[in-house]
């Protein structure tokens, strides 16, 4: 197994950190940071962490929305926040899925 790239825990921590900073800044930075964090994670991940890359986006946005409750956000505000981010979330899922497929294909070609 290749040792290049980030292990699963670094993938999860990195993407969460980037999205979290965006969440703290607020406004349009949140969806932008979610897309950036998750896509970067997909590019930088070790092949063994592909599962994390694909599964993490909904978990990350939910965790951050919940975390904003601790910063004084109202429950309804957090729900609205989470709801409005959906198009970006769906785009992120599609993007990371594509990146993973391409990387898998490239890896197979290289081995072949």
């Amino acid at each position: 197994m290749s040792t290049k790239g980030l292990p699963w825990w670094a993938v999860a921590a990195g993407a969460t950190a980037v999205a979290g900073v965006g969440g703290l800044v607020g406004g349009p930075y949140f969806p932008a940071a979610v897309v950036a964090g998750c896509v970067l994670a997909a590019i930088a991940a070790n092949r063994s962490a592909f599962f994390t890359v694909v599964a993490q986006p909904p978990l990350i946005v939910t965790a951050i929305a919940v975390a904003t409750l601790l910063f004084g956000q109202s429950f309804l505000g957090a729900v609205a926040q989470l709801s409005t981010v959906f198009p970006y979330l769906a785009a992120t899922m599609a993007a990371v899925g594509l990146i993973v497929l391409v990387r898998l294909r490239l890896g197979r070609n290289r081995r072949a």
Binding site: V25, G26, G27, F30, T84
Partner: peptide, 8 residues
């Protein structure tokens, strides 16, 4: 309206 906002 409708803009995602996390800032208080």
């Amino acid at each position: 309206p409708g803009s995602p906002t996390l800032a208080p």
